[in-house]
Every structure is written in structure tokens, then in C-alpha cells.
């Protein structure tokens, strides 16, 4: 106990460097995004107006403040392009997360029921793809799905289809890529809660005459809900803002919001609109986070 009290001083000092780093490179940049989202596009370097110049004195600063507008946000609301992109992002993330849950749950469940000594190996096998490059994993699928790729060769060879199908630039390809890339993020939190489950609970259910299927729904599923929540969150939030997978695998007729930000920024060089789009995306993503936080709090309180 005395050790804890003695060491807290130096440990607090340890917080200073990472604290400053995060404030400077994580918190402060959000201020810039909000400011630029209120600016106007300009053909200049940097491509927005007004630029706050502290050296120019107080009056010009006040004048610059007066030039800030909500025009970019009005554009986001009035132009269907952005609304559709937000809608599509949420829909795609929802569908992909649902598929991930349906595939990830049986795998995590099987992992948790393996003999103890195999569980570590199984977990390692699921983690390894998470370490392999995202881009490489998407590229591996382009290899398979392209017009004269492996999938079409196999399908035609087996006589399932008569002519090669086009897989690339479709939503199917995008969903395959999303599910493939995010599967470890779904499996690991599910496995973490399922492996902690006490097997005696299922035995008790069986002894009381509960069928295995019913026991699964009445015992296993409620216990695994925290893992489901964490897995859904870990997949849903990044997928809403996903750029690489829809860009490389989906068609170009409907864009997701990550692609829209990228396009506004790099192609149209409209930094203020890109910033406003990012601010709104962030606001959308806070919603599931708050829900999750609340659910967790309720659970902690329920345990007491």
C-alpha cells in the first residue's frame, strides 16, 4: 500500500510527455478541422480563406472571424450527393457488421470450446491476418475476383457458370473485402467473453431439461452480449469511414463518405467542404459510442 502511494508521484510525471503529444497532435488538429470547415474555398496556398494571421494584429483577426460561414454545412444538407454518401456508408457498415457477426460468432464459439492448449494457437491464427497489411489483403481479393481470376476460372471449370462473371467493381466484392478485413476485429472480442463463460452454466441448464439450442439462446447469448457490443463497435465505426476497400473493390457509381472526403480533398482540392464532411461524420460516429458507453455503465451498475 505504501508503495502505491510512493510511486504515484513519478508515475504522474510519466503522463506529461504522452499527454502533451496527444494534446498537440490529436486534440488541437480537431480545432483546425472545425475552423477550416467554416472557411471558404480559395485558389491559394493553403486553399482556404480566411487565414488567421496572429502577426497582422487584432483588427484583422476580428475581421477574419467575421468571414467564417456555415456555407459548407448548408451545402452538405442541400446536395443529395453528400446525404446519399452518408446514408450509403451507414447502410454498408450495418450490413457488413451483420454479416461479420453471423460469421464471427460460430468461429469464436468454436474457438472457446477448443481444448485449452489449442485455444492460444487458434487465437494466434486469428490475430496473424490482423498484422498483415490491409492493402495486401484487399489486393489478394482483386487477384481472385478479377475477370480472368481464380474464382471465375474455377466457376467456369466446374460448369457452374458458362461465361466469366464480373465480380470486381460490385457491392458483392466490397462486402467480401470488408468481411475479410474486419473478421479478426469481430472474432477476438466475442472469443474473449465466450472463453470466460463457465461451462457449469450449460450443464445446469441441461440438467434442468433445457435443450442445447434453447440453452444457447437463454444462457450463452446473453452472457456474450458485451463481446457482441465491442465487436460490433470495433467493426461498425471504422467501416463507416472506410476508404480503401470501397475504392478498390466497389463500383464508382455510389460513393461512401470516406471516399467523398478523399475526393473533395485530393481531386477537387476543396478543403473546407472535406473538413465539414469529416466533422459531420465524426458527429454521426459519436452516437454509437455513447450508446455503447451507456450500456457498459448500466452493466457495471447491474453487477454491483
Amino acid at each position: 500500500m505504501s508503495a502505491r502511494r510512493l510511486f504515484t508521484g513519478p508515475a504522474r510525471l510519466a503522463a506529461i510527455a504522452p499527454y502533451l503529444w496527444l494534446a498537440l497532435f490529436f486534440l488541437v488538429p480537431f480545432g483546425f478541422v472545425i475552423k477550416i470547415s467554416l472557411s471558404q474555398t480559395a485558389v491559394a496556398q493553403p486553399p482556404y480563406l480566411p487565414v488567421f494571421d496572429l502577426a497582422a494584429g487584432w483588427d484583422s483577426l476580428v475581421a477574419a472571424f467575421g468571414e467564417l460561414t456555415l456555407d459548407n454545412y448548408r451545402l452538405l444538407v442541400s446536395d443529395n450527393l453528400y446525404l446519399l454518401a452518408y446514408l450509403r456508408s451507414v447502410m454498408v457498415a450495418f450490413t457488413a457488421t451483420l454479416i461479420l457477426l453471423l460469421i464471427g460468432y460460430p468461429v469464436a464459439y468454436a474457438m472457446a470450446r477448443l481444448p485449452r492448449r489449442w485455444q492460444a494457437t487458434a487465437m494466434m491464427l486469428v490475430i496473424i491476418p490482423f498484422w498483415t497489411s490491409f492493402l495486401i489483403r484487399v489486393y489478394a481479393w482483386i487477384n481472385i475476383l478479377q475477370h480472368d481470376g481464380l474464382l471465375n476460372t474455377v466457376l467456369v471449370g466446374l460448369g457452374i457458370v458458362s461465361a466469366p462473371l464480373s465480380w470486381l467493381a460490385t457491392d458483392t466484392a466490397m462486402y467480401i473485402g470488408l468481411v475479410y478485413s474486419y473478421l479478426p476485429f469481430m472474432i477476438l472480442p466475442l472469443y474473449a467473453t465466450l472463453s470466460k463463460m463457465d461451462g457449469a452454466l450449460l450443464e445446469a441448464a441441461a440438467d434442468l431439461g433445457c435443450s442445447p439450442v434453447k440453452a444457447f439462446w437463454l444462457v450463452t447469448v446473453p452472457i456474450s452480449l458485451p463481446g457482441v457490443g465491442a465487436g460490433v463497435l470495433l467493426c461498425f465505426i471504422p467501416i463507416v469511414g472506410e476508404f480503401v476497400i470501397p475504392d478498390l473493390l466497389a463500383g464508382s457509381d455510389a460513393l461512401m463518405i470516406g471516399q467523398t472526403i478523399w475526393l473533395e480533398f485530393f481531386t477537387n482540392r476543396d478543403w473546407p467542404v472535406a473538413s465539414a464532411t469529416a466533422v459531420v461524420l465524426l458527429a454521426i460516429l459519436v452516437v454509437p459510442l455513447v450508446f455503447y458507453e451507456r450500456a457498459q455503465m448500466r452493466q457495471i451498475e447491474g453487477r454491483r
Binding site: F25, F26, V28, P29, F30, F32, V33, I36, P46, L233, L234, I237, P238, V240, G241, E242, F243, G258, I261, W262, F265, W271, A274, S275, A278, L281, L282, L285, L289
Partner: peptide
């Protein structure tokens, strides 16, 4: 959990500023 597009954009705007 932050989408990479947002992290990248915010940092770039800082570096430009």
C-alpha cells in the same frame, strides 16, 4: 476506432497551418 480518413485529414490541416 477513429476512421483513418479523419485522423489523416486533421493532422494534415495542422501541418499545413
Amino acid at each position: 476506432v477513429m476512421p483513418e480518413v479523419i485522423t489523416g485529414l486533421t493532422l494534415l490541416l495542422l501541418f499545413v497551418a
